[in-house]
């Protein structure tokens, strides 16, 4: 099963990097769906020999919240948006990918000095999760639109989630569900704010639109 876990980890990082390199917002959301989909099956691979009801519940909850509900909310938030692609990121797409690869290298370097106590399922879980967190960070700081920043936040959460799976036993189910629920509500509220921002600026006369604010849209 280690092969499957390794493959999933690498896929998660690769998909995060693809989001960083994608131009269209709908494309980014689609890639995020695939990433969440891959991620949600990791508990299956981790506990393939002795599946419990808890694993199944976690897989289902992740799948529903991250791969279905969250993207749906994001699509809802951008339904009226006239601009469907990222305009003028602070760093160009080519440079973003190069920076991204440096971040991945850095994450692997840092992770090499972090030793987990207890048995380790796969060597790739920690470096890959750190890489994904860093790539998510990079999406947040280099992209200028609110909706892409939400996506960056979600990618970052996916990285943290991958990390959480490696210490499955330390957290009670209740807390895990709480964390998932919080992230879901976060996306929900962020989407509402994005929607309000859009409405406010679609209706505001052009003279009131400040360039500073326009850039964050």
């Amino acid at each position: 099963m280690t092969t499957w876990i390794d493959t999933s980890c690498i896929l998660v990082v690769f998909l995060a990097l693809s989001i960083l390199a994608t131009y269209r917002i709908t494309g980014m959301i689609h890639i995020f769906v695939v990433q969440s989909f891959v991620l949600s099956f990791v508990p299956f691979f981790l506990h393939a020999d002795a599946l419990t009801g808890r694993d199944v519940m976690l897989v289902l909850a992740t799948l529903v919240l991250k791969a279905i509900v969250a993207p749906y909310i994001l699509f809802w938030a951008i339904r009226h948006m006239s601009m469907r692609s990222e305009v003028k990121p602070f760093i160009g797409f080519g440079t973003s990918i190069i920076c991204g690869t440096f971040l991945i290298a850095g994450a692997f370097w840092v992770a090499s000095s972090l030793k987990l106590p207890g048995k380790l399922i796969s060597d790739l879980v920690i470096p890959c999760s750190l890489s994904t967190v860093l790539l998510g960070f990079m999406i947040i700081v280099t992209r200028t639109k609110a909706i892409t920043q939400v996506l960056g936040y979600l990618v970052m959460e996916n990285g943290i989630f991958l990390f959480a799976l490696s210490l499955f036993d330390a957290m009670p189910t209740l807390i895990e569900m709480g964390i998932l629920l919080d992230i879901f509500v976060a996306v929900f509220i962020m989407a509402i704010v994005v929607n309000h921002i859009n409405e406010e600026f679609e209706h505001a006369p052009a003279s009131l639109r400040r360039t500073k604010m326009g850039e964050t849209l």
Binding site: I140, M190, V193, H196, I197, M213, T216
Partner: peptide, 9 residues
Amino acid sequence: LEATWKYLL
């Protein structure tokens, strides 16, 4: 709205 967004993010 801008302040809310900043706070939230």
